Amino acid sequence: MFVLRSAFWLTVMFLIIAPKDFDLGKTASDASAQALKAGQQVIVSQVLASDCSTLECAGGKAALTVLAGSKFPFVDIPMQMTSNIPVPLPRPRPDRMG
């Protein structure tokens, strides 16, 4: 209960004190994009730093470099827009249950 009460009052105070020309959604999306880009750069630099002696390893490095340079399609599409995933339906109730 204490956590809920604290969250409520912190939200109320933020709404009262927050600047009116501040776009929280845009700031959050910019920070998210920046974190994703930094993470991609770290992963690519770690993979490229390892030594490869086989052709398969070199091909994997090249594919990773190409993927890191492009934008991933699942980042921009909200989950609600991808409703083409089949969902299993529950079994019907047995006749004896009414």
Rank of each mutant, 00 (worst) to 15 (best):
S29G: 04
V47E: 04
P86L: 05
K61Q: 08
L4Y: 10
R93A: 15
F2M: 11
S6D: 14
T27V: 15
Q34V: 09
D30L: 09
C57V: 04
S45K: 15
P90M: 03
A33N: 14
V47C: 00
L36A: 12
P73K: 06
T82K: 14
P94D: 06
F8C: 09
D21G: 09
D76V: 04
D51I: 00
A68S: 13
T82E: 10
P94S: 07
P73V: 05
A35C: 01
F14K: 11
M81A: 09
N84Q: 13
M13A: 11
S50M: 06
S29W: 01
I77H: 06
A31M: 03
R91E: 15
V75H: 11
A63D: 04
S50L: 08
K37C: 06
G39L: 01
P90W: 02
S6I: 04
A62G: 02
Q40M: 12
L10W: 12
A18P: 03
T65N: 09
S70M: 15
A35P: 00
V47L: 08
F8R: 14
I85H: 07
D30I: 11
A28N: 06
L48S: 11
S53C: 01
P19V: 06
L64H: 05
S70H: 11
L24G: 01
D76G: 07
N84A: 13
A68H: 03
A18L: 10
L24V: 05
V3R: 14
L36Q: 15
L64W: 01
P90Y: 01
E56C: 00
D51P: 02
K20T: 09
L24T: 03
A33V: 06
Q34F: 04
R96L: 05
L64S: 02
I16H: 04
R96D: 07
F14Y: 11
A68L: 03
S50F: 00
A63E: 01
V3S: 13
G60P: 01
V44K: 10
L48G: 02
F72H: 15
A58M: 04
Q34G: 05
P78S: 10
S83G: 14
S50Q: 13
D23H: 08
L64N: 04
D95S: 12
T54A: 00
S53H: 08
R91M: 13
G69H: 06
F8H: 12
T27A: 11
G60M: 00
S45A: 15
A63H: 02
R93V: 13
L36G: 10
T11F: 06
T82R: 15
F22Q: 06
Q46H: 06
A7E: 07
G60K: 08
V3W: 10
K71V: 10
L67C: 07
A38D: 12
Q40L: 12
G25C: 05
A18Y: 07
Q41I: 08
V75K: 13
P73C: 04
I77Q: 07
V75W: 09
E56W: 03
S83F: 07
F72E: 15
S6W: 11
P78I: 04
L24F: 03
